[in-house]
Each structure stands twice: as structure tokens, then as C-alpha cells.
Design a protein around this nucleic acid. Structure first.
Lengths: 236, 236
DNA sequence: GGAGATGAATTGTTTGGACCAATTAAAAGA
DNA sequence: TCTTTTAATTGGTCCAAACAATTCATCTCC
């Protein structure tokens, strides 16, 4: 799968980059797959470890791979070759103004997502969303694990909603936008009260979707996002 | 400007990344600025060239810096950590469905941009937009250079409009979205007729902005984008 | 004096090897 | 059987040397 690198026109790390992205795009490397170790992969390609590492760092910056110290390098979930919202998770300080800008974008995208989902989604998709919410409500049992469950539910809810629009580009943008905001949230102290409120607001959004009322869906989503933003900005 | 790196919790290249992005976002490093050479910068920060280079490669992948062999490292124009496009890798073939998805996103973003610009922008900003359009109209003289001028005008117009919203994240997203669509356009045969039509539509949008009519602005923008999309999909 | 060739200095690129640090799994001990 | 220790694997960091592209001062020749 990894032939030797031709040492012709462009630089070595660019060639490595090209070969790796090609492997990902062609499907030889699927999301979740683990790459060979840096040492062996470098040897396979006939390049130095340094050059390989620089290419890997670029892929990591683009969100296409996930580098874990002591474990290995993994292909990112949904690692799309284009329209990746690049971020340096936890490596950039994001000020309040930027958070507001991000939320303004998010409100624009997600209210429209909700509308499109309302107009386009099959009943089964909405039922699936409903199940996610109900399932989370039932699995809560006052343990400290609840926060983890609620965080995952939140991410899953908004992702599923984006998928319900049928627009794959938007799914990708939303995914990365949520990731970025999640990192921001993790930089602050955890908020034990907010997640449960969110879950209830999610429930209201689902109910609005079931009623197929565009205006109601839009309103519920906007209220939800405003609350999340306010809570996040308060604890910084 | 570049103090020594603290060697505490996170990895070295992350620290370098953090310090450099902070310097760029804070304005210490402005677009076009040339960074100190790798050797001296590494010494300033008290890190190895290897770590510094890996951080620089990540910044390059994110489009924040421009690395030129034999010349140096330069801060990119309008560099920010919020990129939609990956700067490396050979051009990806984008199918029609994806183009439609991209345009759906673009319509959502740009109609709202127009609305925000209508509500928020100073008169001087709108006058500036107007000047761009008029200036282009005057500089046309039936030469083959016209296409280049018109292409640049188109990009400048939409970028300025995004800037008029005051949302820096959206500016970045729009910039890269336009870049991506521009690549798509370049993959097709050039369309000699469309650009001039676009210019006139731009003029109509500016007129609508001057009237401060939100509904009119929204409508004009949507018509414009629908035309561009139709023309682009037709020639593929 | 000016155009082109030469070569040194600067800058990013690549390499090999050594060692540090996080993770995992096997081995040893209780 | 469970816990602790150890060793192996993997990414992270550093260094020193050589390679390659670019720039620019200098030299040569017309």
C-alpha cells in the first residue's frame, strides 16, 4: 500500500502528503484505521522519519488524522479531503469576541438546519432523533457518568440534525464547529446544571419537528442556542 | 516578542503553535510579515528546529503562513485558525451534488451576510463596495485581461461584503468557500459571458444596500447566486 | 558603464541517530 | 487471582551535518 516515494519535482513531505491523502481518499485507509508506526512507515516509503512526521503534522492540522502519543496515528472519523474546518484543538486561546462570532455562525447554520430537517426529513429520521433524546432521559441515574452521557448526547443530537438536512458539506462544517466549541467549553470549568437543561430543550425541538411547524422549530432552536451561548460566556 | 517556551504540560510544538497563533491573532505579526529564520526563531524560543518546523508545517497546512524555500516564512493574508479549505494536496474532483451542497451553504451564508451588512455597515463601507463595482466598470476595455479583472472583482466584492458583517469567523469561512468554488470553476472551461452579468448583479446588490432595504438586498443576492450556480453547473 | 557570470551568504529541506515520554502488554510478585 | 513491575512499542524532542533554492554583492567582459 505504501510504495517508495519518487524524489523528483516537489519536496519529500509533499509527496508523502499526497500519497497519504490519496490513500485516504481512495479508501485504502478508512476512518479509525491505525497507520503503521512512524519508524516502519518512513522505512516503507523510503523517507526519513522527520519528513514523514512533518507530513503527518499537516494532516493532523487538517483534521484528517489523529495523533496519539504512545498509541499511534489514526485516520479521523469522517476525515474528508476537503472543506475541513481547521482548528488547533486546545492549542489556541479563543477570546470572547470570537466565541460570539462562532455562535452567530452556529445560530445561522443550525436554525436553518432545523428548518431543512423539518421540511425534508423522513418521519423515521425524526423518530430516530426522538429516540436519542428519550434514551438519554431513561439512562440517567444521578451518577457522575451522567455528564459524559449528556455531552455525547448533545453532540449526537446536533450532528444527526445536520445529517437530516441531506447536505454533506454542512454536516462536515457543523461537525467541526461543534468540536471547536466543545474544546472551548472544556477550557472552562464544567457546568453541572446546563446539560440537563439542554436535553429538555432538545426534546422541545424534536416535538416541534414532529409537528412540522417551521416557525416553531426555528424558535425553539434559537432559544436553545442562545441559552447555551449565554451559559458558556458566563463561565469564563 | 518571542519569549522562551515553558516546558510544562503540553508538548513543545503545541506551545510553539500557541505562541505563534497568539502573535498572529493579537496583531504582533501582520499579514505579509516575514518571520525570523527557523534557526534564530528556534533559538529565541528555546526549542529545537525540529519542533519549530513541525509547528510551522501545521500553520502552513492551516493556511496561516506561507513557507518559501530559500526566502523565508511569511504570514498569510487574512490568516486565521478557522479554515474551510485544506491548502495542500492535489485538487479534489468535486461532483455536481457536492457543488449543489456548497452552493446551498453559500446561499445561506451570503444572503445573511448581505442582511447583516445592510443592518450594520457604515455608509462608508457601502460606498467602498460601490466604488469597487464602478471602478471595474470603467476599467473594462475589451481586452483579454478583462476576465482576470472581473474574476478578481468578484472575489473582492464578496469578501468585502463578508467583512462588512463584522464577523471574523464568517469572513474566513467565506474566503475559503469562495476559493474552493473558484477551483471548481477553473476545472471547467472558462465562461466568457457570465462575469459581466455578475458585475451588473453586484451593482444591483450595492444599490439595494444603499436603500437599506433588507428584503431587497436578500432577494438580489439570492438571484445573483442562483444565476452563478446555474451557469457553473451548466458548463461541466 | 552596463550586462551577464560567479560565488558566498541566507533560508528552508532532508537525513540519521540518540534519547525522552506516554501507553500498552507481558512478566513477576503477593 | 489480583496487583505491581518490567519491557516493548509508539510518538516527542533534540542535535549536527549536508542538501537545495534564493538572494545579492562581486567580478568579468564587452
Amino acid at each position: 500500500m505504501f510504495g517508495p516515494i519518487k524524489r523528483d519535482p516537489t519536496s519529500v513531505y509533499e509527496q508523502v502528503l499526497k500519497q497519504l491523502t490519496a490513500a485516504i481518499m481512495h479508501g485504502d485507509l478508512k476512518p479509525g484505521d491505525k497507520l503503521p508506526s512512524e519508524r516502519s512507515l518512513a522505512e516503507m516509503m523510503g523517507v526519513s522519519r522527520t519528513s514523514l512526521r512533518e507530513a503527518l503534522k499537516m494532516l493532523a492540522a487538517a483534521g484528517m488524522v489523529n495523533i496519539k502519543h504512545g498509541q499511534g496515528v489514526f485516520i479521523s472519523e469522517k476525515g474528508s479531503p476537503f472543506n475541513v474546518l481547521i482548528k488547533f484543538a486546545g492549542k489556541v486561546n479563543i477570546d470572547d469576541d470570537t466565541v460570539r462570532d462562532l455562535f452567530e455562525l452556529r445560530k445561522l447554520l443550525e436554525t436553518q438546519n432545523a428548518v431543512w430537517a423539518c421540511q425534508r426529513a423522513e418521519n423515521s429520521v425524526i423518530d430516530n432523533l426522538s429516540e436519542i433524546v428519550e434514551q438519554t432521559l431513561n439512562s440517567l441515574n444521578d451518577t457522575k457518568d451522567d455528564l459524559v452521557i449528556l455531552a455525547r448526547q448533545d453532540s449526537e443530537f446536533h450532528t444527526k440534525l445536520a445529517e437530516a438536512t441531506g447536505n454533506k458539506v454542512i454536516v462536515r462544517v457543523m461537525h467541526d464547529l461543534l468540536d471547536l466549541l466543545n474544546d472551548v467549553r472544556c477550557q472552562t470549568l464544567s457546568i453541572p446544571d446546563r446539560p440537563l437543561k439542554s436535553l429538555n430543550e432538545h426534546k422541545e425541538i424534536v416535538e416541534a419537528l414532529k409537528s412540522r411547524s417551521v416557525d416553531l422549530v426555528k424558535e425553539k432552536m434559537l432559544v436553545h442556542l442562545n441559552n447555551v451561548e449565554a451559559e458558556l460566556l458566563k463561565n469564563r
